[in-house]
Amino acid sequence: MGKSSVVLLLAVVASLLAGGTANAAPASSVVPAAYPVKNASTLTRNTLYSTGPLPATVCPERPVRAGSAASARTYLKALVRCLDVTWSAQFLKARMPFSMPKVKFITKPETVCGEKWRKSFAGLYCSSSKLIIVMLDRDVLSRPSDLFLMDVIAHEYGHHIQNISGIWGEYVRLPNRGKAEYYEQTRRHELQAECLAGAFIGSVWKSLDRPDEDWRYLLDASRRSGDENYKIRDHGKGKNIANWLNRGFKAASPSACNTWIARSAMVA
């Protein structure tokens, strides 16, 4: 799918949270790189990166019943309110204008934002309408107590943050020298959204009343959900998805999420 599309899709974890492990890379492994991003200050030096940690918002989770789309909607709507509070405060610190996204839930594939829904995806973001869509079908609802739903909504909200901070627009305008560079740029975009999701989850973690094992479980699943499972290499290897998710979580700050200056190996 081309960058001109208004839709950015998040791949469903292949086994909906199955094994593997991943650890965050040290901050020293992120260094400025000429390839493929240069002369793009909105990406590489965005004001958002210097705003410090996200506020430690209290965000208790609502109960979700297996197979219940209604309870999943209630759960996700509460998370969206927390995301609104957290990111609006961060944009206030950055002295950047903030706007909340719209959210829509569907239970079966349909055409959204001019695109036909693909079965292998759980969420998408339409940049032109600032709309997040989340799929709540039988597969997604089979194990709703896992952190998967939280990661999906926080990832798509991460795309909204990219959009309103100017990152999305400059990403779309990046030139490329062929398919390999185009896909690397796309992976930087997707991995940043995943890191921003991790930053949000880290900022509310203490209020979730969850054991650390739940976080490790999500990282395990992320490690198995990468481009190794698909023909198109546009989201990153599983180890890199888990790495950026965990970087964001540990820092609880967008400062950890500057994928645009990372070495190519970190966004492969």
Rank of each mutant, 00 (worst) to 15 (best):
A11D: 06
V13H: 13
V13L: 14
A14T: 14
S15Y: 13
A18S: 15
G20S: 13
T21R: 12
T21I: 12
A22H: 02
N23Q: 15
A24V: 07
A25N: 07
P26R: 04
P26F: 02
A27L: 13
S28M: 08
S29T: 13
V31S: 04
A33I: 10
A33F: 08
A34K: 15
V37S: 01
V37W: 01
K38D: 04
K38F: 03
T42E: 10
T42R: 12
T42L: 14
T42N: 10
L43E: 02
T44Q: 11
T44S: 05
T44W: 06
L48H: 01
Y49I: 08
S50T: 14
S50Q: 14
T51Y: 11
T51S: 15
P55D: 09
T57M: 07
V58Y: 11
R62V: 15
R62K: 14
R65P: 01
R65E: 13
A66K: 14
G67E: 10
A69H: 05
A70L: 10
A70K: 08
S71F: 06
A72P: 11
A72I: 10
A72K: 01
A72N: 07
R73E: 08
Y75K: 10
K77F: 11
A78P: 04
A78F: 03
V80S: 01
R81P: 02
W87F: 15
W87S: 02
S88K: 15
A89C: 12
F91K: 08
K93I: 15
A94F: 07
F98H: 08
F98L: 10
S99F: 14
P101W: 04
K102E: 09
V103D: 05
V103W: 03
I106C: 01
K108Y: 12
P109F: 04
E110C: 09
E110G: 05
T111P: 01
V112R: 11
V112E: 08
C113K: 02
G114D: 05
E115K: 10
E115G: 10
K116R: 13
W117D: 01
W117E: 03
K119Y: 15
F121V: 13
G123R: 03
G123K: 02
L124S: 01
L124C: 07
C126M: 04
C126V: 00
C126S: 02
C126Y: 00
S128R: 13
S129C: 11
S129Q: 15
L131Y: 01
L131T: 06
I133N: 01
I133G: 00
V134I: 11
V134T: 02
V134F: 00
V134D: 00
M135Q: 08
D137N: 15
R138S: 12
R138W: 09
V140A: 05
V140E: 03
L141C: 04
L141G: 00
L141Y: 04
